[in-house]
Design a protein around this nucleic acid. Structure first.
Lengths: 140, 140
DNA sequence: CATAACTGTAACAAGTATAGTTACAAATCA
DNA sequence: TGATTTGTAACTATACTTGTTACAGTTATG
């Protein structure tokens, strides 16, 4: 799979954690719902914790809880927290500088890339985790 | 790199082809500017041809030309022609159906994915190949 | 018609990214 | 102290992407 599924898993996991607001949720429990390995979940939770979307606790009775209320967690924040790639990548090889197109195209594409990123962020900013929870509860 | 660089290369290549509107451009020439192998370029040109953005000719004096004027080629079309991935992937493993979140999350994420795709397409539809050519000619 | 110049495409190699797995140190609670 | 849980390193397996070689088929031209 080219694109990254981290965002999908993150939304899934956050919805689960939000659903158990009175307790700390364990990575093993989350892993069962996502159908993957607990370590995969923990790695993801580390990113979400860095972004201050969740708080995890080590040790017995440890686990993860939301750092804020679901209505205060925008999906754009989730996206930024876990997505490493961009919508399209710049070509890894340096274009030929002797060619007028090759010389300037990188900067143009880079600018376009940033614009697209901003567009996505804006769109995802329209939704909060609360919206997701409600959609889960009341499927269309 | 997670994301795909096909779009970047495609824009680069199309700008080159547009710059030589009076002749057929050869894959080897394009490969030199992009700094890659001619076969990589030809593979890409096949996708662009399927999308009716360029026309390639086999044989001696063969090569590629635009199928339409640059101002009639929207970057959204280029994107659709070459991008295989999505902004974010759904998790490949089937979520646990016994969990209310796992059961419904896929459909929600899928809908969100489509919405994002539409947003990107819309944004890229604001630019044509002509805009790119002008940016190449007059770097900001 | 023979030849040279192209594309289209198959087949394979190499590099890279992602996901999954095991293992274990460190922290925490009872 | 012992059980539990996260954080993280290390490794494997898989799959994707790019690059490369090779060659069949097509076309212009002397």
């Amino acid at each position: 799979m080219a694109a990254n599924s981290q965002f999908s898993i993150a939304v899934h996991v956050l919805a689960m954690v939000a659903g158990k607001s009175d307790e700390r949720v364990k990575s093993e429990y989350l892993a069962k719902s996502v159908n993957t390995n607990p370590v995969v979940i923990r790695r993801l939770l580390c990113s979400l914790q860095e972004a201050k979307l969740v708080v995890s606790h080590v040790g017995a009775c440890g686990g993860t809880a939301l750092a804020r209320k679901p209505e205060e967690i925008k999906l754009s924040e989730v996206y930024k927290a876990v997505s490493r790639g961009e919508v399209f990548a710049l070509h890894p090889n340096k274009p030929n500088e002797d060619c007028p197109v090759g010389k300037n195209i990188e900067a143009i594409l880079c600018g376009l890339q940033k614009e697209i990123d901003k567009t996505i962020e804006c769109k995802l900013g329209e939704y909060t985790l609360r919206d997701v929870i409600e959609m889960v509860a009341h499927p269309a």
